[in-house]
Amino acid sequence: MFETLAWIIRRDVTIALRRRTDVFTTLIFFVIVISLFPLGVGPDLDTLRLIAPGVVWVGALLASMLALEQLFLADHRDGTLEQILLAPQPLSLLVIGKVIAHWLITGLPLVIMAPVLGLQYDLSGEALLVMLWSLLLGTPTLSLLGAIAAALTLGLRAGGVLVALLVLPLYIPVLIFGAGAVEATTSGLGGGAHLSLLGAILLLALLGTPLATAAALRVSSE
């Protein structure tokens, strides 16, 4: 059973590595959005340090949302999704495989890139480390929650915009605790509590969302 999971991850990562543009567009979008804020707000380092956690996190939110539409769409178009739905194994498990692959392709690069962008905002080493951790714990939750919306809007004309409308309200807790962790660190309170909550949310999402996504996929591919 877990062999299938591994195969799905391997398949999606292989495909992504063969057409790298998908990986890079998300990452470049993230970099550009983050780099635009100083141009809009002004180069004052004190202000930038203050808004950095929120900016990086909102950037990560938008970037990961941007990649969502593609999550099941390619499989839906070439018919492999039907084969996945007809697999004699729990669909939610295969969904977890898809989401893990999706996170490795679109989420992990953001996590790795974020500290570099944090330097633009003059964040301290400690804050950068906490930012790395918060993104590491938070972005998988974004992918898991986003998968529900991607499955619900599968193949719809207004898919992309609709995904944003459905998923952004659900992202709020992750945004609050993620940005909060970094902010608490910079203000000297310590981000431990925030990180624990992010971890707890990730566990909850891991348990609950694959079921909802699987149900949504069955409904959407009818």
């Binding site: 398949r11 292989t14 495909i15 063969r18 057409r19 178009r77 070439d78 018919g79 492999t80 039907e82 084969q83 007809l86």
Partner: peptide, 12 residues
């Protein structure tokens, strides 16, 4: 089941 789509990944 084999539908009218081939269910093959283009890049593999």
């Amino acid at each position: 089941y084999l539908g009218h789509l081939n269910a093959l990944k283009d890049d593999l």
